[in-house]
Simulated assay, not measured.
Amino acid sequence: MEAFVRRLKSAWKHQEFRVYVIESSAVKRFLVVEFVLGYLVYKMALYVCHNDLIAGASSWAGTEGVKRLPLLFRRIAGV
C-alpha cells in the first residue's frame, strides 16, 4: 500500500498528460460482440429456458466466452 501511495504522489508531482488512442475498429468489434451477440444469445436462451434470469446469465457467459475464444485457441496451438 505504501508503494501505491508513493507512486500516486509522484504522478501528481510530474503533471503528466496521457493520451489514450482507441481504434474505431476496436469500438465496432466491442459493440457487435456486446450488443448484437449478447442480444442473440439472450433471445435463444429465453426461447429455450423461458426464464429471464437464466437468459441474462447465458447472455453474459456467451459474450465473455466469445471474447476469450482466441486466447483458448492460442493456448491449444501453443503460440
Rank of each mutant, 00 (worst) to 15 (best):
S58I: 01
E23P: 03
L37D: 00
K9I: 11
L69G: 08
F4N: 15
V5E: 02
R68T: 12
R7L: 13
V41M: 02
R29K: 07
R6V: 07
G65S: 12
L69T: 10
W12D: 06
Y39T: 05
L53C: 10
Y42I: 03
L37H: 02
K9S: 08
L69Q: 08
R18S: 06
F30W: 10
F73L: 06
V5P: 01
A26Q: 07
G56T: 03
Y42M: 05
A26K: 13
V21T: 10
R68W: 12
S58Q: 02
V36I: 11
K28H: 11
F17I: 11
G56C: 05
F35L: 08
E34M: 07
E64W: 15
L72T: 03
R68D: 04
L31V: 08
V33Y: 05
T63F: 01
L72F: 09
L40D: 02
V5L: 10
T63D: 00
L53S: 15
L71W: 13
F30P: 00
L46N: 06
G38H: 13
R6N: 04
Y42F: 12
F17D: 05
V36D: 04
L46V: 05
T63E: 00
V41E: 01
S59R: 04
A26I: 01
V5Q: 09
L8C: 06
S10M: 13
K67Y: 13
V66K: 05
G56W: 05
Y42H: 08
W60L: 13
A26C: 09
A61C: 13
H14T: 13
H14G: 12
K28N: 14
E23H: 12
Y42Q: 04
G62V: 04
E34Y: 15
R6K: 13
Q15F: 10
A61D: 03
A26E: 10
V48P: 01
K67F: 09
L53N: 08
L37I: 01
V27N: 10
Y47V: 15
L31I: 04
F73K: 13
K67H: 15
Y20F: 14
A55R: 02
V33I: 07
F4Q: 08
Q15L: 11
K9W: 08
W12M: 15
Y47C: 12
T63M: 02
E16A: 15
A61S: 11
V32A: 08
K13L: 12
R68I: 09
L46D: 07
A45V: 06
V19P: 00
A55H: 03
R7S: 15
A61I: 03
H50E: 10
R6H: 07
E34L: 12
L71H: 15
V66S: 03
I22C: 06
V19Y: 06
Y39N: 07
V5N: 10
E64K: 12
F35G: 04
L46R: 06
P70K: 13
G38R: 06
G56Y: 03
K9G: 06
L46A: 11
L71P: 01
A45P: 00
K43T: 05
G38P: 00
H14P: 02
N51M: 09
C49F: 12
P70T: 06
